[in-house]
Design a protein around this nucleic acid. Structure first.
Lengths: 223, 223
DNA sequence: ACAATAGTGTCTGTTAGACAGTATTCA
DNA sequence: TGAATACTGTCTAACAGACACTATTGT
């Protein structure tokens, strides 16, 4: 058994929704390699502190952003000889989602910024660290796909939301307009929402809902 | 940066279909730890030989089984402090599929055997190595789910197959009987099959097909 | 001719999509 | 009262599921 062990890291693609556009949180790297470039929130797995890779992702988010998002799931593992100039390396990629409300204080940090991932990522920084542009693309693709057959998009909204808000998020993520009457019927029939109070806006007040469980799956594409 | 690097391995859940039952290929471990127990086809990533983790999976299959399956995809990565008694370890889990035809010669090897994964895995060996029982469960679950909205099950059949054969596989994997007339209409309308010649059996000969592409996805559950 | 398997026609209930209409609030 | 937004009713076309029927082979 003579071979060098690869490095093992976690990288988190943290998405949120600002002004109707999907954004990813990137941090400016303060260390070589790729110092100064924008990269994902990530870091080495610490075998002395992390019980498993999920815990490593949570610890990384806590320590770098001081924040734990409402949804976190593993996407894939990117592992090859070329992604890091230092040599063979593996990164367990996570997708994180949270509503933007709680993020305002994070945005004042100079080393973190939200970048628009819409339009195929043309608004991302031109020279991102390592293969992180690809990791963003893969995670966003997975997210858009999963949005079609699950309630995952609920995590981009505050806990309590109206059907109009939910429909709006579906439309943004799936890039397809929905008919309000049909959207309402479809999602209510799925029985995944729990009614809360009413929410007041500029017209008739709307019934508020929350997700009955963190995530539910459908057997057909909803939107 | 002071921490010990975790071990990084690939483990392949190799499934095939024998006598109408889904089987997984397991090998008897010839080394400690867990020597003598049944485990997945797997091994360390060799940073000197493997360009990426997919290549490591292929090399492992080639060297241990002398065989490369028709379908191979990454499922997830299981990474924690407890799965290997030697310490923190990460395994990139792969799902592999192949029709059983080419496997007959492999079955004569004493260190490899096919185990039935049906009925919730009750026919698997009682004491499997490491967390491999869980890895089998996760990969089989993923496979059954993906079978519902893709042509992935085609890889459990020879390249050329009839609709009756395909329907049979769907029924086995999804554990739900299908109406032949409706199944035929649904799958043909999806336009994922390419007609070949005809295949003769004990009644009227059937049109043979093959997958038009290695895998295609549907927007609703097919079966 | 008959058994066996492949494939088609057609009816019915359910669902998706379109869109008109009603309900409830605020200014 | 009117603007704005929430919600409901209803029509139609498409589709899923059930099942009766026809087609083509081997024996």
């Amino acid at each position: 058994m003579n071979y060098t062990k690869p490095d093992l890291t976690v990288d988190v693609v943290f998405l949120t929704l600002v002004e109707g556009r999907l954004k990813v949180a990137l941090m400016r790297r303060d260390k070589a390699p790729d110092k100064g470039k924008w990269g994902l929130v990530g870091g080495y797995i610490h075998t002395d502190k992390d019980d498993d890779s999920d815990a490593a992702a949570v610890r990384t988010l806590s320590s770098k952003l001081d924040f734990v998002p409402s949804h976190l799931e593993q996407v894939c593992t990117e592992a090859n000889a070329h992604r890091d100039p230092r040599g063979w390396s593996a990164s367990i990629v996570y997708l994180a989602l949270h509503d933007p409300e709680a993020l305002s204080n994070l945005l004042e940090r100079k080393d973190m910024q939200l970048f628009d991932v819409e339009d195929g990522g043309v608004h991302l920084p031109a020279d991102m660290a390592f293969d992180h542009a690809k990791l963003v693309r893969v995670a966003v693709e997975r997210f858009r796909a999963k949005a079609g057959y699950s309630t995952i998009v609920g995590h981009l909204l505050p806990e309590s939301f109206t059907l109009a808000e939910l429909q709006n998020v579906y439309e943004l993520v799936r890039q397809k307009p929905q008919n309000p009457a049909n959207f309402r019927r479809k999602i209510l029939k799925l029985d995944v929402l729990e009614p809360l109070g009413t929410q007041h806006g500029s017209g008739r007040p709307a019934q508020a809902y929350r997700l009955a469980s963190p995530i539910a799956y459908f057997d057909r594409e909803l939107a």
